[in-house]
Computed example of a mutant assay.
Amino acid sequence: MESLVLALMNYPAAISLVPKAFNPGIASPTWITRKLLLHAVLQHAPALKGKLLDFGCGAKPYKSLFSVDEYIGVDFQGEGHDHSNEQIDVYYDGKTLPFENDSFDSIFSTEVFEHVFNLPEMLDELNRVLKPGGQMLITCPFAICEHEQPNDFARYTSFAIRHLLQQHGFEVVQQEKLGTSVQALWQMRITYWNLHVLYKLRNIPVIRSGARLFFNSMMNAAAWLCNAILPFSNDLYLNNLVLARKK
């Protein structure tokens, strides 16, 4: 409860610094997923303290949500993702993190684990560089299309991600499914239409922009309404969120 209160107090300033791509308006095809992720990270960010490692940091889109002493971003230089205009402090080779043992008080990683081809090995590395008792906040998708091809390797159920963490030196402090079954189904429908139907208008920029604005706004609004009135289920969901602690 205390972390939620602190998050809400910092909400206006912190949210205003998050890039639009990660805090989109209702006309965005990723509005459902991005809003769920943003609010979840904001709520749990106060749990991370001291010297923080952002694993797979990219452009560090959620950096403003954290109040830490030092924020260091590490990423992998590989195909499938363009790192230009990003804020990477250190690159790693895909196998070993270039830091001493017990270097960090906390770790944050969002929407990265599905791109790590050797996740069990990297979980050992993350455990190694995290101080005993340090906490790690992660999110990773469950229902999502392939992306950043060919660097897309896995989808983890809530049970699988918990098992992996426990097998590699972490205890799960808190775990959440982000998004309901209704939201997941609507998000996939919206994604399909944007990638395979509205995309055909790409050579008519004005019409395409207008069509996307109208279609995405209407579909996102319909998703919100359906989610409010239909029976709750999260057997199918959009993202995993886990707060874990090094044993």
Rank of each mutant, 00 (worst) to 15 (best):
E100G: 08
F117G: 05
G169K: 15
M136F: 06
V129G: 01
R128A: 11
G133V: 14
E100W: 06
G169F: 15
D102Y: 10
L137R: 05
E114T: 02
E114K: 04
E121Y: 08
N151P: 00
P141M: 06
E176H: 11
L137F: 01
F159R: 10
H115D: 02
P132R: 08
F153V: 02
S109D: 12
A154V: 13
P132M: 03
S109K: 15
E114S: 13
H163M: 07
V112Y: 09
D102I: 03
E125P: 04
F99I: 12
A143G: 10
Q166H: 13
Q135Y: 14
F108A: 00
N127G: 14
M136S: 01
L97T: 12
P120A: 12
E121V: 07
P98Y: 13
L185G: 04
V182L: 01
M136K: 04
T157H: 06
Q149M: 09
L126R: 09
P98I: 07
F117C: 04
Y156N: 07
P132V: 11
V112T: 15
Q135H: 15
T157W: 03
I107R: 04
F159W: 01
E114N: 11
Q174A: 11
S158D: 11
Q166W: 05
T180G: 00
R128E: 11
N151V: 08
E121Q: 03
P150D: 09
H147N: 01
Q166P: 07
Q174G: 07
V129N: 00
M122Q: 06
S181P: 03
E148D: 06
S103E: 14
E111T: 13
L137Q: 02
G179S: 12
A154P: 04
V129M: 00
F99H: 15
P120Q: 13
L164Y: 13
T110K: 06
L185D: 12
P98L: 02
Y156F: 06
F117H: 10
H115N: 00
N118F: 13
M122T: 02
V129H: 00
D105I: 11
P98S: 06
P98E: 08
Q167K: 14
Q183Y: 03
Y156R: 00
Y156Q: 03
S109E: 14
H115G: 00
P120Y: 13
N118W: 14
C145D: 04
K177M: 04
F142I: 05
L185Q: 11
L123V: 08
R162S: 05
L130N: 04
F153I: 03
E111F: 10
D102P: 07
Q174T: 12
E171M: 05
N118S: 13
D124F: 00
G169T: 14
V116K: 02
I138H: 00
Q135N: 12
S158C: 00
L130R: 04
Q167D: 13
P98C: 09
